[in-house]
């Protein structure tokens, strides 16, 4: 694949926004340079003919395990739910006001 896919500081900025990770401008530049190196290295894959190969998403074929629709005593108490919460209000998690 051509360099049109090259990872630039702008692309890093967009992915960082989607990832909700704040980056300074310097960090963006450094990361763009590092990630572009990784991308260029991974471009090795672009030469492999894979059109007739189905993506492999799980190591084994076959069905997943299901569970019965039963209360198996896994429900946490409200205080367990909130035990590690950085901020809470009246048994709710508290975040900056979201405009609904």
């Amino acid at each position: 694949m051509s360099d049109s896919n090259a990872i630039t500081a702008e692309i890093v900025a967009k992915a960082a926004r989607l990832s909700r990770i704040a980056l300074s401008e310097d960090e963006r530049l450094v990361m763009a340079e590092q990630l572009e190196r990784v991308r260029a290295w991974a471009a090795l894959l672009q030469d492999v003919p894979v059109a007739d190969v189905a993506p492999m998403l799980h190591p084994h074929e076959g069905a997943m395990r299901l569970r019965a629709d039963e209360d198996t005593g896994q429900t946490l108490t409200v205080s367990e739910v909130l035990a590690n919460a950085p901020a809470q209000a009246e048994d709710h998690f508290l975040v900056p006001r979201v405009v609904g």
């Binding site: 896919n5 967009k14 991974a42 894959l45 672009q46 492999v48 894979v50 190969v53 993506p55 998403l57």
Partner: peptide
């Protein structure tokens, strides 16, 4: 992300099968 999924993630999953 949109525009890169096929060329990177999806392609890697196909190579995984190979």
């Amino acid at each position: 992300s949109s525009g890169y999924y096929e060329a990177y993630y999806d392609r890697a999953c196909r190579v995984r099968r190979l």
